[in-house]
Amino acid sequence: MAETLRSHGASHVHCVGSVADFLSAGAVPPAPVRLWDVAVWDTGISGDDASLTALLDQWRTGVPGAPVVVSDEAPSTRRAMAALRGRAADMVERGDPDGLVAAVARVLENRADPLRVEGARQAGPRMLVVGAHPDDVEIGAGGIIHRRAHGGWGITILTLSGGANGGDPDRRREEAHRAAEVLGAHLIMENLPDGSISDDSATVRTIERAVAEVDPDVVLVHSESDTHQDHRAVHRATLVASRQVARLACYQSPSATVAYQPNRFVELSEADLEAKLSAIGAHNSQAASRWYLEEELLRSTARYWGRFSRTRYAEPLELVHDNTPLGYYPADHA
Rank of each mutant, 00 (worst) to 15 (best):
L192K: 06
V107E: 02
S253G: 07
T206H: 03
Y260C: 00
G154H: 12
R34K: 15
L55V: 12
D200V: 04
E318Y: 03
E224K: 03
L5F: 14
T43M: 10
W291I: 11
T43C: 11
A88K: 11
E295N: 03
D168L: 07
G306Q: 03
E174D: 13
A275V: 14
R290Q: 15
V245E: 01
W41C: 08
V19T: 15
W291Q: 11
A25D: 08
K276D: 14
G95I: 06
P64C: 09
W59C: 13
L317C: 11
S18Y: 02
R94L: 15
S198M: 06
Q261D: 11
S255R: 08
V40F: 06
E213C: 03
L277I: 13
P97G: 10
G327K: 06
L108G: 08
A180P: 04
G162Y: 03
V240I: 14
E138R: 00
V19C: 08
W36S: 12
N191T: 15
N191P: 00
S46M: 05
T43V: 13
Q286T: 01
W291E: 09
V234F: 07
R147F: 04
S269I: 14
W153C: 02
R264S: 09
S24W: 04
H177F: 12
A237W: 01
D230H: 01
E295Q: 04
I207T: 00
L326P: 07
L5M: 12
R85E: 14
S300P: 00
E270W: 13
E224L: 08
A66P: 00
A102D: 07
G154Q: 15
A271N: 08
A89R: 14
N263V: 09
S24T: 15
L273K: 08
L108V: 10
H146I: 02
V211P: 01
H8S: 12
L160D: 04
H177T: 09
D98V: 13
E138L: 03
L220N: 03
A39H: 05
A212P: 00
